[in-house]
Write a protein that binds this DNA or RNA. Structure first.
Lengths: 152, 152
DNA sequence: TAAGAATCCATGATATCCCATAAATATCCA
DNA sequence: TGGATATTTATGGGATATCATGGATTCTTA
């Protein structure tokens, strides 16, 4: 199992610690770096989470932009420049930095949302809204999954 | 045999456990992940069930989208965020999460309905109603099965 | 030496594993 | 072919391990 699936709501304690769901940890077990990489999402008030090994692929994908384009520069800055690498403690928890908590408006709880090869961290009630929005978009815009390469 | 066929009604015990029909398990025997992936159906008050490999395929296809595009995000949220991955215990049972039981209104029993490459889980009496509805629709609208992909 | 981090330990809840039973099915052998 | 014996299944219950969580203790380092 290597995919991040399902949604888990865990508690953020007074120290900013939160358990990464056990199944997410299992999906990260084969990594050399035992932990996650987080950065603030561009499109939403949430946090993007990746395995450390996936960051290399992200970099490759960014190279498909023109090397000196404004877009490439912006993305690289906001992703690599702002990402944080958070190791698990002995009990599978990470400590969320203050700016992350603030950006995603995380309170006592946060939602870990599986997105396949990555995941997101949300304020639970904000995610509820996001969930219906996503479902609505898929339906109304008729978004489908392309069979092979070449999708939008 | 790799298809889910026929309908089986099994008991949901006090712990929320239910046996996956043996023939369904046989259809999943070649998988690396020994278990099923479930999510709430959009069209009906039932649960959709898939082999985990199906999710892996979806993930591969999603990789054709730009990583942070709105479409990718919407699809990943509504597909992966809302699914759950349930492993078999030693006796071929799974534990149904509370929100799944609630959504499909499952009581003491549930019906596993083979649908070919996927299956559905229903409240048995709700499924009886659904069955006659489906048969009626097929008859009145003269629905048929197209020869290959991309039919009518 | 005080503030913040990292590590360690305790605990209840829950999932996982293991075994027992009974019914249904399959298998075997005279 | 008949009938006795194995296997497989679905189901229930209890023991055990895991997980999320909170708090305490040790370690850094400013």
């Amino acid at each position: 199992m290597t995919l991040f699936l399902s949604t888990f709501i865990n508690k953020v304690d007074r120290k900013g610690r939160v358990s990464v769901p056990a199944s997410f940890r299992a999906a990260l077990a084969d990594q050399t770096f035992q932990g996650v990489v987080l950065f603030r999402s561009h499109g939403h008030a949430c946090i993007e989470g990746f395995p450390q090994s996936f960051m290399a692929e992200l970099s490759d994908r960014l190279d498909n932009f023109d090397l000196f384009s404004a877009d490439q520069d912006d993305l690289a800055t906001s992703i690599f420049g702002e990402s944080v690498q958070l190791p698990f403690d002995g009990d599978g928890r990470i400590i969320l930095p203050a700016n992350i908590i603030e950006y995603a408006d995380l309170g006592e709880q946060c939602a870990f949302v599986g997105m396949g090869r990555k995941f997101q961290i949300w304020n639970p009630s904000a995610f509820e809204a996001r969930k219906s929005e996503a479902r609505e978009n898929v339906k109304s815009r008729g978004v489908t999954i392309p069979k092979t390469a070449g999708g939008a």
